[in-house]
């Protein structure tokens, strides 16, 4: 134990280190073995289950992106093509026009197109949509529920912990296999 780098403590230390390394490598290998049985080649993506969604509006504000990756999508086959769309118009619309005071959408993201009397088609401009769920609320409460929210994977950065999922009061957002990254509403569902 004097100042000399005496051979014995040094080799002893090396021996100990080698033992620890062996132990660690075995441990890591074992862990890898255990985990490999549970691992999956498929990664996951976050998605909203529209059946659980309570349209609280968190999706618009809790996403880590400036403009949320959650957008309203439209299941056209479920839509009634109503003239008075309760997803498009304010609850007590002043007039059935596209004027700002009548529209529910705060960003003018829904386009209303005349198809034939008395049917109108409503399409979402995703560039403008912020995922605030105001239209979803209107459509679900009074209409067919053909408007609903989905995480758009061309925008989502797939955070390890989705900030919206963390703030979702209905636990509606969960990991889905990358092979089926959307949960669309369909007729009869």
């Amino acid at each position: 134990m004097n100042g000399h780098p005496a051979g014995s403590p040094c080799s002893r230390r090396q021996f100990l280190r080698g033992g620890a390394r062996l132990l660690a490598v075995t441990g890591v290998g074992g862990l890898a073995g255990v985990l490999a049985t549970r691992a999956s080649a498929q990664t996951t993506r976050w998605q909203i289950d529209p059946a659980k969604c309570v349209r609280c509006g968190n999706c618009a504000t809790k996403c880590v992106l400036k403009q949320s990756a959650v957008k309203c999508v439209h299941a056209f086959a479920m839509c009634g093509y109503c003239q008075l769309c309760t997803g498009y118009f304010e609850p007590e619309p002043n007039a059935l026009t596209t004027a700002a005071e009548n529209q529910l959408c705060p960003t003018n993201a829904i386009k209303r197109t005349y198809i034939e009397d008395p049917y109108y088609e409503y399409t979402i401009d995703e560039e403008l949509c912020i995922g605030c769920a105001k239209c979803v609320e209107g459509c679900s409460r009074f209409g067919n529920g053909s408007l609903f929210l989905q995480i758009r994977h061309d925008r989502c950065v797939n955070c390890n912990e989705c900030a919206i999922a963390r703030n979702c009061p209905a636990d509606a957002i969960s990991r889905t296999p990358v092979g089926h990254p959307y949960r669309l509403k369909t007729e009869g569902h």
Partner: peptide
């Protein structure tokens, strides 16, 4: 909620309007 799909039955368009398809942008490639 979910079961309300038929409040306003989807119309049969006389003009033969084609329903648009709901897009599903693909996530990043595996």
């Amino acid at each position: 909620t979910a079961g309300a799909a038929s409040r306003f039955p989807p119309p049969d368009f006389e003009g033969g309007h084609q329903l648009p398809v709901t897009t599903t942008p693909a996530p990043r490639e595996l």
